[in-house]
Design a protein around this nucleic acid. Structure first.
Ligand SMILES: [Mn+2]
Ligand SMILES: [Mn+2]
Ligand SMILES: [Zn+2]
Ligand SMILES: [Zn+2]
Lengths: 126, 126
DNA sequence: TACGTTCATGCTGCAAAGTTACAAAAAGAC
DNA sequence: GTCTTTTTGTAACTTTGCAGCATGAACGTA
């Protein structure tokens, strides 16, 4: 798990630091707001801001904004697992990585799409 | 165009005001940040905030966040056009509404999905 | 068209969010 | 261990977003 993280970060030219491990570890328990991450990790505000941006840019984390709520940061469980979609439940606020073949996009769009975010109610919440 | 907007707003119990027309008109030329809308319309900061929230709630506008950049507000060209996906180009930062049949999701997820946001590079930017 | 009700706008001021700059600390290559 | 480069934490700062309130505009009604 941790050596996976290190490899992923190093591939992008980023160092595997204690704060980064802390943030990822906190997100492994479920989506978190910035404030929650701050409290859970005890890190500095600025460090959390900066690392969340980086983790998003390397694709380890994605951000979900629901109008009227604080943005949530969600961990992608398929680091480097190639193309796949993210489903996020607007009610229970959990995120899932869907297998690539869950979603099919017709050409010419399929080739253009890089990230997919689906919002809705999960099976349990529907 | 303007009578369409009025109808859409009135259906939701909202008034068709000059500021609202200004914001929509500005967004018709492409996605804009909050600051750009402020400058383009000359409206009060608070009025822009409040109306962007309202326009998102009625589905006329959606918001795109790219890590490390200001959020962009994008006009949905298919007011009340039923279920459809939104594609946003991360390079040229333009948004397009895709027909519903552009994307197919396998069951049981298809029934759960409510909103779809696709990110990538458009044909011109690829 | 004029009237009255109700909603929207533009203040002001405040709290929270997010950014910048820089010195100190840690990571990783050798 | 030493060296180089990235990252961190601190502090000062800017921006974003929100609440309350008086003024003004929208629109149904007549
Ligand atoms: Mn994922
Ligand atoms: Mn649309
Ligand atoms: Zn759910
Ligand atoms: Zn493009």
């Amino acid at each position: 798990m941790k050596s996976e993280l290190k490899k992923t970060l190093r591939q992008k030219g980023l160092r595997c630091t204690e704060p980064r491990r802390c943030i990822v570890e906190a997100l492994e328990k479920g989506p978190k707001t910035h404030a929650e991450l701050l409290h859970l990790t005890g890190l500095d505000r600025v460090t959390v801001y900066r690392n969340l941006i980086l983790l998003q840019q390397v694709g380890l984390v994605y951000r979900v904004y629901l109008p009227g709520h604080e943005p949530l940061f969600v961990l992608c469980e398929k680091e480097g697992g190639g193309f796949h979609a993210h489903f996020f439940c607007e009610k229970c606020r959990k995120g899932v990585c869907l297998p690539a073949d869950t979603i099919q996009i017709v050409e010419p769009w399929a080739k253009q799409v890089d990230k997919v975010l689906l919002l809705g109610r999960c099976l349990h919440c529907a």
